[in-house]
């Protein structure tokens, strides 16, 4: 009998699945990060122009990629929340926003610390940096909008609209280095190939997977908390072993 994937769109069905997936992604992230840091600091050579400071790339590029990718995923769940009105879609979008905001902050922070020794400045109002800053404001705006609306279902719809409108910023970030003359360098990694040294590229890609796995693990953990918050009056939540354990304390 084929597996019914639509069954997973119910919070009650997805809650235990998320709980099973979290340790796999968390340990995967830890192992990949260890390998990526070993490649980045132990194997990859010193850059002939930038010296050691280029090693910030192993966290800057993954966090920048994740900041954009998570936004698109959040908007995707927003589309599902608007189109189908599924509760889990809104919860998923809610769970992604804080991690996306933190990835954007890390990209901006590490970029500033890379820019100072490389370009001589922490910040410039060039197209790539400014559009990435706008992405941070979009994430913060979506989080604030949700906090301002009491009804979770209305908050889901409002945040979905804002996140879908904000998607226009993602191609602007990605292509900004092509469309405008920016201080930020162009893409070193393309679908057609890379201009980077092999071990540098390998370290960066492994760290990207580590960040991706970390994001999945932490978003699923936050999703489980959100499910408990929003479904707390449902009978199935009261029957969960961890909730029953807490109820025992209250008796």
């Amino acid at each position: 009998m084929p597996f019914n994937w639509f069954k997973l769109s119910s919070p009650a069905s997805f809650y235990p699945v998320a709980g099973t997936l979290i340790p796999w992604f968390a340990w995967g992230a830890a192992i990949l990060a260890a390998i990526g840091l070993w490649l980045g600091f132990g194997v990859a050579p010193t850059d002939f122009q930038q010296g050691e400071v280029y090693r910030i790339i192993f966290i800057h590029v993954p966090s920048a990629w994740l900041s954009m990718f998570l936004y698109v995923v959040m908007a995707f769940w927003g589309v599902l929340a608007l189109g189908f009105g599924t509760r889990l879609s809104g919860m998923m979008a809610q769970a992604i926003a804080p991690t996306g905001a933190l990835m954007t902050f890390i990209a901006l922070w590490t970029g500033a610390l890379w820019g100072r020794p490389t370009w001589g400045t922490y910040w410039a109002w060039d197209a790539r940096m400014t559009s990435e800053l706008i992405l941070l404001f979009l994430y913060l705006g979506i989080i604030a909008l949700r906090q301002a609306i009491g009804d979770p279902r209305r908050a889901d719809r409002a945040c979905a609209v804002l996140s879908i409108v904000g998607v226009v910023n993602i191609p602007i970030i990605y292509f900004s280095v092509k469309w405008w003359n920016t201080l930020h360098q162009g893409a070193s990694v393309k679908l057609t190939g890379s201009s980077m040294e092999t071990t540098m590229l390998a370290g960066m890609l492994v760290m990207s997977f580590a960040f991706w796995f970390y994001s999945i693990a932490v978003v699923l953990a936050r999703l489980r908390a959100i499910v408990l918050e929003r479904e707390r009056d449902a009978a199935w939540v009261g029957a969960l072993p961890d909730v029953r354990g807490n109820a025992g304390v209250l008796r």
Binding site: L228, E231, R232, V237, G238, L240, D242, V243, N246, A247
Partner: peptide, 8 residues
């Protein structure tokens, strides 16, 4: 979990 337990 604590809040859900209070509801349950």
């Amino acid at each position: 979990a604590h809040t859900a337990a209070a509801s349950a």
